[in-house]
Amino acid sequence: MPSLHALPAFQDNYIWLLAGADGAAVVVDPGDAAPVLAAARQGLRPVAVLVTHHHADHVGGVDALLSEYPVPCYGPDDPRIPAVATRVGDGDRVAVPGLGVAFDVMAVPGHTRSHLAFHGAGHLFCGDTLFSLGCGRLFEGTPAQMLASLDRLAALPGDTQVCCTHEYTAANGRFARVAEPGNPALEARLADVQARRARGEPSLPSTLASERACNPFLRIDEPGVRATLSARLGHAPRDRVEAFAELRAWKDGFAG
């Protein structure tokens, strides 16, 4: 089985590497080339790059990395990502040379209009669409688009490793507690996060089973979440999209 590596970058980003026994590694969202090149000096060897979306903290290191390792690079069909040589889209399949792993490409608009996720080998590289205990802000998409994207991701197998790209879990958990008070699965997850961070470890990856049990953005149909939303709105949400839109707007202004 390939091994997973989370390389810290910037203030709270992770660059993900999925590596084989011989060090061959697929690199996901290298916003900075330096951590990847440092890992390469320790024996990991980039053989492909995956890009989920165009934001600089996800693509800023692609050019420098490809200049050192001219490997295949896959990403959205978006002119804002000029370094990506191979444009892929929903339903495509990316086979990584030298690693024996293939990824299914999923269009997950919402955070950005061209955002992709890559699912393969039991791992989900979801960029800024799904976070542990949260989801990305809606910079370009609509609530309906983001809800549909999250529904697609939530339907993947429960043991899928959720490899999102920011260390936001503890902060997201503070909001999740308010959005769905009294969720025992959430309290257990937050205790685990606190222990991991105290040891200097990432809170990630999570699993989709955990997210379905704890993440309010995947739980908008649950009575506890609906009750808090109804109290905020003064009426029951008219539909799932309104429920999600209110939850996301609430999170945007949350300072807890």
Rank of each mutant, 00 (worst) to 15 (best):
residue 20 G to T: 03
residue 222 E to R: 11
residue 180 E to Y: 00
residue 87 R to P: 12
residue 229 L to E: 07
residue 77 D to Q: 11
residue 204 L to K: 15
residue 104 D to G: 13
residue 56 A to M: 09
residue 21 A to R: 13
residue 135 C to M: 12
residue 46 P to Y: 03
residue 201 E to C: 02
residue 226 R to Y: 09
residue 256 G to I: 00
residue 162 V to T: 08
residue 81 I to K: 03
residue 200 G to L: 10
residue 231 A to H: 07
residue 12 D to P: 00
residue 124 L to V: 10
residue 106 M to G: 00
residue 210 S to Q: 15
residue 75 G to H: 09
residue 204 L to V: 08
residue 201 E to L: 14
residue 151 D to F: 08
residue 66 L to F: 05
residue 234 G to P: 03
residue 64 A to H: 07
residue 5 H to E: 09
residue 36 V to Q: 09
residue 171 A to W: 14
residue 115 H to K: 01
residue 7 L to G: 13
residue 79 P to W: 10
residue 92 D to K: 00
residue 256 G to Y: 00
residue 177 R to M: 11
residue 216 P to E: 04
residue 147 L to K: 10
residue 197 R to T: 14
residue 46 P to H: 09
residue 162 V to M: 08
residue 104 D to H: 09
residue 96 V to D: 07
residue 253 G to A: 15
residue 158 G to L: 05
residue 63 D to V: 12
residue 34 A to S: 14
residue 168 Y to Q: 15
residue 107 A to F: 01
residue 33 A to C: 09
residue 62 V to W: 05
residue 50 L to M: 05
residue 32 D to C: 09
residue 55 H to G: 06
residue 41 R to W: 02
residue 120 G to I: 03
residue 228 T to E: 10
residue 187 E to L: 10
residue 251 K to H: 15
residue 175 F to A: 07
residue 242 E to R: 05
residue 4 L to H: 05
residue 21 A to W: 06
residue 19 A to V: 04
residue 22 D to A: 06
residue 13 N to L: 10
residue 55 H to V: 14
residue 48 A to L: 02
residue 200 G to S: 10
residue 176 A to I: 02
residue 64 A to E: 14
residue 220 I to W: 06
residue 123 H to P: 00
residue 57 D to Q: 10
residue 138 L to S: 02
residue 26 V to E: 04
residue 83 A to T: 13
residue 232 R to Y: 09
